[in-house]
């Protein structure tokens, strides 16, 4: 059992507050992704869990044991680094077996475990090579194998795929997900790539300015963002926003249209909808098409509603010309509302 509990963890570097009072529980064998832009504190949080950084305050528990005062090697963790940190002076075999050697495991056990994980990562034929003779993707595999060889309770990964090219990244993404599911370890994975986060995670923690804004399943984060930041960070293109004014109980005026909305006593809200949740209809929001981008699978149209830019994804067969007026109806159950003051979602 390796449930991870992060309790009131804060970290400041001098006057700079990198993490504000983080609370997060990661279930045993869960694949948790920490997602956020650079500087949001996701790597700092990972490094605190690893023991490479000390929290200013707060506690970290793994498997019911408080570990924040222990050295990294005593925490039952293994880590995959962004730049791989594959030791250049050791062969692939010795790199994968490094942790086991440090634990003074017998030679035959080291050999057995190294060969097993090398097989898992498809690098059996590289065991005698040095890292200078490997490609980026192969080094990445060595770094993952080195972590798996430890059979750790928890694997920590710091942007492990960010140095690979796009195609390789996609391939490794699927492979990593499979290998980690099989190894039954709890995984924490730091990335700024939302596609990576969506495709790999059991749960995503979206981080912003040292806070966890939302921690939920990928589809929940996508469908029901808890705050405007999440709505505009997740999704490519992100959610559209338009200002809404009250028009009676549960009714809101959006760009000249009256829509059903929350019964909130507010002077104004933000109406939000994903680009793919709009359809051309008889009546709806009136928009002027500005830029039309055929993307093969669908058509991305950037239009203008009042003063605001608004993106819709339409069927690829649709014919739209710049300057054309579109009437767009939002899919009612996909409309979300945000409070402009708190930026939080309003139900």
């Amino acid at each position: 059992m390796a449930e991870i509990q992060i309790k009131n963890v804060a970290k400041s570097f001098g006057a700079y507050q990198a993490l504000n009072n983080i609370n997060l529980t990661i279930a045993d064998q869960e694949f948790m992704v920490l997602l956020g832009a650079s500087g949001c504190g996701k790597s700092t949080l990972l490094r605190i869990i690893a023991g490479l950084e000390t929290a200013t305050s707060g506690e970290v528990w793994i498997g019911g044991k408080r570990i924040d005062h222990l050295s990294p090697k005593d925490r039952g963790i293994a880590m995959v680094f962004q730049n791989y940190a594959v030791f250049p002076h050791l062969t692939v075999f010795e790199n994968i077996g490094f942790g086991l050697r440090m634990q003074k495991r017998p030679n035959d056990e080291v050999k057995r475990r190294v060969e097993r994980v090398a097989g898992l990562m498809h690098i059996e034929m590289l065991l005698k090579r040095y890292s200078g003779e490997l490609s980026g993707g192969q080094r990445q595999r060595v770094a993952v194998a080195r972590a798996l060889a430890m059979e750790p309770d928890v694997i920590l990964m710091d942007e492990p795929l960010s140095n690979l090219d796009a195609l390789l990244r996609m391939e490794m993404r699927a492979e990593l997900k499979g290998v980690l599911a099989e190894s039954k370890t709890t995984a924490i994975y730091v990335t700024h790539d939302q596609v990576e986060a969506m495709s790999m995670a059991d749960r995503i923690s979206v981080m912003h300015q040292g806070n966890i804004v939302q921690a939920a399943s990928p589809i929940e984060v996508y469908r029901n963002p808890s705050a405007r930041f999440v709505a505009s960070f997740i999704g490519n293109p992100p959610m559209n926003f338009l200002p809404a004014t009250p028009a009676g109980a549960g009714k809101w005026q959006v760009a000249g249209q009256t829509l059903d909305g929350p019964k909130a006593d507010k002077p104004g809200l933000h109406f939000a909808i994903r680009p793919e949740d709009m359809q051309q209809a008889e009546s709806g929001l009136v928009a002027t098409a500005k830029i039309v981008e055929p993307l093969g699978a669908h058509l991305l149209v950037t239009c203008q509603i009042d003063e605001a830019l608004f993106r819709v994804i339409l069927d690829s067969d649709t014919v739209v010309k710049p300057g054309q007026t579109l009437t767009l109806a939002p899919q009612a159950d996909r409309v979300r509302w945000f409070d402009p003051d708190t930026t939080l979602a309003v139900a």
Binding site: G51, M79, F81, A85, F98, G99
Partner: peptide
């Protein structure tokens, strides 16, 4: 020598002396 190698050595259980002799 990049700092990351020492961090990796830390995580994978090398003592300070081992880090000196092995890294």
């Amino acid at each position: 020598i990049p700092k990351e190698y020492y961090e990796a050595a830390d995580v994978f259980g090398a003592s300070k002396w081992k880090q000196f002799t092995r890294i």
